[in-house]
Amino acid sequence: MGYDLRLRVWRGDRSGGQLGDYSVPVEEGEVVLDAIHRLQATQAGDLAVRWNCKAGKCGSCSAEINGRPRLMCMTRLSDFEESETITVTPVRTFPVIRDLVTDVSFNYEKAKQVPAVKLTPRDPDGKRRMMQVDVERGQEFRKCIECFLCQNVCHVVRDHEENKEAFAGPRHFLRYAELDMHPLDTHDRRKLAQDVAGLGMCNITKCCTEVCPEGIHITDNAIIPMKERVVDRKFDPVTWLGSKIGRRDPRDEV
């Protein structure tokens, strides 16, 4: 049943900080976020932490728990020994604001660079028709809850601040792939994915896929197919010939 959990939580801000040691009473069936909340309500009222749904649906409470990037609301205490100390630190790839809260604006800035969907006109009855099998590929990527854990573990940016300018990261490759696979979209973003989002910098080590709490096959279903589509556009002789004789992909490059 209940026991006193030994919890270490990183406390600090941009100028630095350290791990604080706490003992927090916890109950059966609880998750790490429950322990953090109890700590906040009883011992550290100003402990900064993001959370919203507490059900793995909003992607707010990302952190590193004993070094592993996870959602605090979906990490059960029963996964650990009662004698074990649980250490919670902020995600490493983004600058700390305070305690467990980091500045994730990188992700929102990159999102602005993706041109929106632009569909073909509606059918005469005012509706659109798409087959389930055709929307399912995009639907897998739209399960993304924007927890940014994939961005956090991606080694292209994890310890390489200098790569952030040219690299949008796995979350946004999902977005490019989703739009590219949309049955009715009229934009061609392949050049953009390569040049602006830095798709070529990804060397498919699958770290992103491993941490995705939604189980999206980021590497296999989004990044690799997207890389192939980019390559097709550049090097496929048929495409090349087509572009020379005026037969182009019906989509407009953006």
């Binding site: 929106a116 969907v117 509706k127 028709r129 798409m130 087959m131 389930q132 929307v135």
Partner: peptide
Amino acid sequence: VLELEEWGALFDRTPEGLIS
């Protein structure tokens, strides 16, 4: 709802391809 589809939402479909 149709407007959401216009803006990129991918709803589940009926066998005829309409929004389920």
